[in-house]
Structures are given as C-alpha cells and as structure tokens.
Design a binder for these strands. Sequence first.
DNA 1: ATTTATTTTTAGTATTACTAAAAATATGGC
DNA 2: GCCATATTTTTAGTAATACTAAAAATAAAT
Lengths: 224, 224
Amino acid sequence: MYAIFLPMLKNNIQVKDNAAPDLGASLRAKRKELKLTMQSVADAAGLSVGFISQVERGLTSPSLGSLASLAAALDTEISSFLHQPSAGSQTTHEASRLAYSVADADVSYERLSTSFAGSKLHSVIVHETPGHRMEPISHHGEEMFYILDGEITVEIEGEVEVLRKGDSIHFESRRVHSTWNHGSSIASILWCGTMDVFGDAPAPIHKKASPQEVATYPTGETEK
Amino acid sequence: MYAIFLPMLKNNIQVKDNAAPDLGASLRAKRKELKLTMQSVADAAGLSVGFISQVERGLTSPSLGSLASLAAALDTEISSFLHQPSAGSQTTHEASRLAYSVADADVSYERLSTSFAGSKLHSVIVHETPGHRMEPISHHGEEMFYILDGEITVEIEGEVEVLRKGDSIHFESRRVHSTWNHGSSIASILWCGTMDVFGDAPAPIHKKASPQEVATYPTGETEK
DNA sequence: ATTTATTTTTAGTATTACTAAAAATATGGC
DNA sequence: GCCATATTTTTAGTAATACTAAAAATAAAT
C-alpha cells in the first residue's frame, strides 16, 4: 500500500527552504512566543539566566533534567522542542479533493491531511478495487483504518479480520500487516496514521546508527 | 468538545498497574523488543556497554547527544522514550461499538482507537445534534475531522468554514478552535488526533513549573 | 560441568552543565 | 538626546557527572 503510494505522492511535495531549527532556537522561539524574559524562564526553571542564554544560542546543552525544567517553565512538552517541520490547505472538500491514482489502477487516493511545523498526523482516503491486495508491510508508527464503504480483510501478524462499513482498526505499524479487498465492490478506507507517507518531514533521523551522522542532532556543540 | 468528553471517558479507563516507566526502562524495553544486546547497542551508538547498563537502570542520565545516539541505534525517535502508555481492542465494529453520551445529551461518542505502548493516535466518532456548539478550545497536538454525515461550521482562530459530508480539516490544536452543528440533522464526525483525550497516558508532565515537581521527570537520579 | 555471552560493578577522569557576577546591549521614559 | 532600567551576553570558574576501561558477577548455551 505505502510502497505504491510513496513515489507518486512525493511528486507533490514543496520542500520548505528552512532547515530544521535546533533545540536552542526552538526554546528561544517558544519563549518569545510567550513573551517571557530569560530571567523569568530561569526563575521558573530554577536555572540561571546566563545558562538560558547559552542554551538558546547553542553554546551548551542542557541535561535531560534541565530540559524538563525548561519545558515545564514554557508549559510545553519536551518532544515539541525536538522537531520542527511546513503547510498546505488544512481543509479538503470531497468535490474538489485531488484524487491520485497510479499505473496500477487498482487503487486511488485522496489526501486529507496537510502539513505544518510539528505535524505528525497523516490521513488519506484509499479506494481499492475488488480483489486488490496490499503486500505485507511493516514500518514505524501507528495507524488506523476506518471503513467508509465496502469491506476488506485485514491481516496483522497472521491474524485475519474482516472489516465492513463503519468498522475500524488501530494498531502499531511495526506489526506486519496487509489488506485485501475480498468484496465485489470498491472499498473506501479512511487511513489515519503517524507514518510520514507524504514525505512532508525534512531531515529524517531514522538512519542506521553512525555516530557522526547522529551528531547532527540539535544539541549545539556536542560532538563525538 | 474535549472539555465535555474528558471526564466521561476517564470513567472507562483501566489504569495499568505499572507506574510510568522511566527513560532507562523505556530504553531497555525497546532494546529487548529488538532483541539486541547492550554491547550491540553500545557499538551502534558509539558508547560503552557499562554506560548503557547504568542508563537503563537509571543510575546515570545520558546527555542529549548520547540520547540521540541511542535513539538512532534503536531506530526510534527520541520522543518515543519520553512517554509510555497501555491496550484495548484494536478493532471496532460499528454494530457493537460502545457509544457514550453524557448528561448533556447533545453529543455522543464512539471510540475507535485503542492504546498501546507508545501510541499517540486517538480517534473517535462524534455525533452532534443540531445546534450543538463546542466551546472554543486550544491545547497541544494536532487533529483532523472528517465529516461522515451532516454538516458543521468550524472556526479556527476566527476563520470560519463550513464542512459537509466527505469534507475534512486538519490543523494544529493549539490554534483556538470550535465547532457548531448549524444543520438540521445530526452531524457525525470522525475525529483523529494526537491529543490524549482518553487519558490513556500515565503521569502527565504538563504541570506548572515547580522545580521540585519537575524533578520527577524520568532522568534517573538527577535532582535539584 | 564448562565455556561463552551478557550485564553489572568499580574506580576513576575528562568534560561540561551550570553558576555568579561583570560587561554589553536594548528598551523605555522624560 | 540623555539617563535609568531591563535584558542579554560574556567571563571565569568548579562541582558534578557523563562516560570510560576493565574486572567481577550473572546468565545462557553446549
């Protein structure tokens, strides 16, 4: 399913010109958004103002404990400082939504989700012709199917289940899964997941561990 | 919308008996899931095996750089080690799905999403009676609405938009948003988002900054 | 029982996370 | 423009700790 749709959808991606901002810049941006001074953040986090300054400018890296204090002082989850990705139309209308299909005409897609800084949610409506089978696949993230029309067979790690109109399933995507439209009509599935199927995100960090590569992580001067 | 549904849904939560696992435990769990030895992780991350052992047992806290190396070695995003929630049925069928309603009978809900370690995706079908209005709200995360039936007016930061059957909208939840069923029939909305509306996640960290409190963050012995 | 694999412990030490205070810069009021 | 105050950056440390190599303990495989 995804293997089929990735190459086609990638052709519609506008790559935003800014690189992923680093941790310090993210912290400063948030502080400014909240119109706080370094001193007030320092007081709330129990750290020194000089340290805040150095962290924001990437001259030093906070420990996890201090980062947690900073995140709390800024009323923000730590994870929101660890990625910052860009936009498209937030709203889609059925009548004017772009439908995509590929050489393999068994499947067509309608993208629902947009993309913005930090977005992790991806959604698409998939229409599969009778008899269409998706190859077994496994990948990061999690996903949900909601059957809008028709019926399909879903297999997850060998467990088979039939889903009909109005049914849903939610699972971790690392579990090997596949679908089959066993019915006699087109099946329409609303897919919603955390896998970046549209290639929206910049600079992935899911490379195989090579320490030099990892050193690009936003920690300022931390270097191996 | 959420303010209304949170208290009600919380009543159906089975609290898993284990407390929120900490960072070290999360790292160990992931390593075991991948069937890796500490030595192989250490090699991949460019760290020592002794250090991995101490980190996993919470005896020491990795720097952000080292944590990034570990995350990469485990082919996982850092943020997934910073929270760990628990399960329910992955599949829901329309005919047997539990529908919830509250004292305020204008709205009823059908939960679609389940919950498992690391799950961040939440989905629910919301049925709103004509005239129902959701108070303006803003919170962390992002969300998507897909209109299954009926029509609603959505307002996001003052921008008003009408969504009809088959339409969708996807936005960052921190933008103040509200909905209104302006139609004459029940509106059914498939909501999919990253906000933990069911209270699945243990130990929230969204407390107001009190350094002592923040010190409970999963960093092992780090103490102020 | 023996060997090997894996994890934990020990004993450090180089590095740095973080400080207080001084200096520089920015802002606001008159 | 001048002056006072607010805010940020810089400086000069140092206590703490992030991380190590190697030994010891434990677990697993044969």
